[in-house]
Amino acid sequence: MSLLGAEGNLSGLLGSQRFRAIAMALFIAGALLVIYGSLNPRLSVPGSAARSYLVHFVAYGGLAVMGSLAMPGNRSIPLVGVGLVIMGGAVEFAQLHVPGRTGSIEDAAVNLCGVTLGCLAGLAIRRRVARPPGGRHRESF
Score class of each variant (00 low, 15 high):
Met24Val: 11
Met24Gly: 04
Met24Leu: 15
Met24Glu: 02
Ala25Asn: 03
Ala25Pro: 00
Leu26Thr: 08
Leu26Asn: 01
Phe27Leu: 10
Phe27Val: 04
Ile28Met: 09
Ala29Met: 06
Leu33Gln: 13
Leu33Arg: 11
Ile35Asp: 01
Ile35Thr: 14
Tyr36Arg: 15
Tyr36Ala: 15
Ser38Glu: 06
Ser38Arg: 06
Leu39Asp: 06
Leu39Arg: 11
Asn40Cys: 05
Asn40Tyr: 00
Arg42Met: 10
Arg42Trp: 09
Leu43Ala: 11
Ser44Val: 08
Ser44Asn: 04
Val45Ile: 15
Pro46Asn: 09
Gly47Tyr: 07
Ser48Ala: 13
Ser48Tyr: 08
Ala49Ser: 08
Ala50Met: 10
Ala50Gln: 09
Ser52Ala: 15
Tyr53Pro: 00
Tyr53Ser: 15
Leu54Gly: 11
Leu54Asn: 02
Leu54Arg: 03
Val55Lys: 05
Val55Ala: 15
Val55His: 12
His56Met: 10
Val58Thr: 15
Tyr60Lys: 09
Gly61Trp: 02
Gly62Gln: 11
Ala64Gly: 00
Val65Cys: 03
Met66Arg: 02
Gly67Cys: 07
Gly67Phe: 02
Gly67Met: 02
Ser68Met: 06
Leu69Arg: 05
Pro72Asn: 08
Gly73Val: 12
Asn74Ile: 12
Arg75Leu: 14
Arg75His: 07
Ser76Phe: 01
Ile77Thr: 08
Leu79Cys: 12
Val80Asp: 00
Val80Gly: 00
Val82Thr: 14
Gly83Tyr: 04
Gly83Ala: 05
Leu84Thr: 03
Leu84Asn: 02
Ile86Ser: 08
Ile86Pro: 10
Ile86Phe: 15
Met87Gly: 05
Met87Arg: 04
Gly89Ala: 09
Gly89Glu: 10
Gly89Cys: 11
Ala90Asp: 10
Ala90Ser: 14
Val91Pro: 11
Val91Asn: 10
Glu92Pro: 05
Phe93Val: 13
Phe93Gly: 07
Phe93Asn: 08
Phe93Arg: 13
Ala94Tyr: 02
Leu96Thr: 12
Val98Asn: 02
Val98His: 01
Pro99Gln: 02
Arg101Gly: 01
Thr102Arg: 14
Thr102Pro: 03
Gly103His: 10
Ser104Tyr: 05
Ile105Arg: 10
Glu106Cys: 02
Asp107Ala: 02
Asp107Arg: 00
Asp107Val: 00
